[in-house]
Design a binder for these strands. Structure first.
Lengths: 164, 164
DNA sequence: CAACAGTAACTGAGCCGTCAGGTATTTGGC
DNA sequence: GCCAAATACCTGACGGCTCAGTTACTGTTG
């Protein structure tokens, strides 16, 4: 084996290790997301998906967001969005209005209850995440972790459409 | 504000930033997992959950694993495991036998088709993950990333039971 | 301006998980 | 040795998503 090949295979092994670790991280993250979501559901009565929609609508403000925009933000089919918003509307968290600019469309916006719920859910959710990290990650590593996570999540987010 | 308080609040701000980033990473990872899972489903005809069960059973070998062990490895209720294994059995990927040591139990093990499918799926899955990382993360950062991911996923895995 | 492709939201069928509750079997204290 | 509690798996009802197809409206183009 030549020196070049040796370097190549070392690099490949490192690649492999990263791929495996990355796969494992995805699995763990997925499970975590699931558990944090259930905690939120117990404590706050809304699903994790609803929580994210509350955040999105909160940022959007008046006059609200189109159904299709919500579907794009979450990974949901139009049918899924319709039913999710149905439930949220029934729970009094959001309200639908006709879009004055396009008579096919509806706009969705938060109700006051929706706003309050978003605030409360955010506190609980942050608390859960913080508790999750607090005594596991040594403080002096946090900055580096934060940096890494930023880069990684940006890279990964960019790649999402590729696998569709 | 005293110097101590200042340090405290700076640390708190760093904490906040990490928590937010971590939350975002979880969201992205979740979506990624979903998309990688669907890719696997298209290319290989098995769900992501089935894939993980194939891996677990592959490691377990003969005479197989109890249903409850599968449920513990994945985050699934016993009912969920029963139905998942039902489908995998119908697809010819696994087979159930009575547990000779406990007449309540059944043991699940891979069929030859299951073994072949596990190998093929692993290749495809690895390929997808690798493609995902390959041209997004600069090579010189890989080792550091791998290291961080290891620490992080260990920390996070340890925390999972806490949120139950 | 009429035709038609494109887009927004909704809906019925189906899939896959949870939950709650059932039966068969094992186990540990008396 | 017997009985209550624990355990292993299965099942019916249900929730929430996708898929595929529908209706209503818009924008483009000859």
């Amino acid at each position: 084996m030549s020196a070049d090949e040796e370097i190549g295979s070392a690099r490949e092994a490192a690649e492999d290790a990263l791929v495996v670790t990355f796969g494992r991280l995805l699995g763990v993250a997925n499970r975590l997301e699931y558990l944090v979501g259930r905690a939120l559901e117990r404590e706050c009565g809304i699903s994790h998906l609803m929580y994210e929609v509350l955040l999105i609508l909160g940022r959007a403000g008046d006059p609200g967001l189109a159904m299709s925009a919500i579907g794009r933000a979450q990974v949901l089919t139009t049918g899924g969005v319709t039913r999710l918003i149905d439930r949220m509307e029934a729970a009094g968290l959001v309200e639908r209005t006709d879009d004055p600019a396009d008579r096919r469309g509806r706009l969705v916006r938060l109700t006051p209850l929706g706003e309050r719920t978003a605030v409360r859910a955010t506190e609980l959710h942050r608390g859960n995440l913080r508790r999750l990290l607090a005594d596991q990650l040594p403080g002096e590593h946090w900055e580096r972790f934060a940096d890494d996570l930023r880069v990684l999540s940006r890279a990964v987010a960019k790649e999402v459409p590729r696998l569709r």
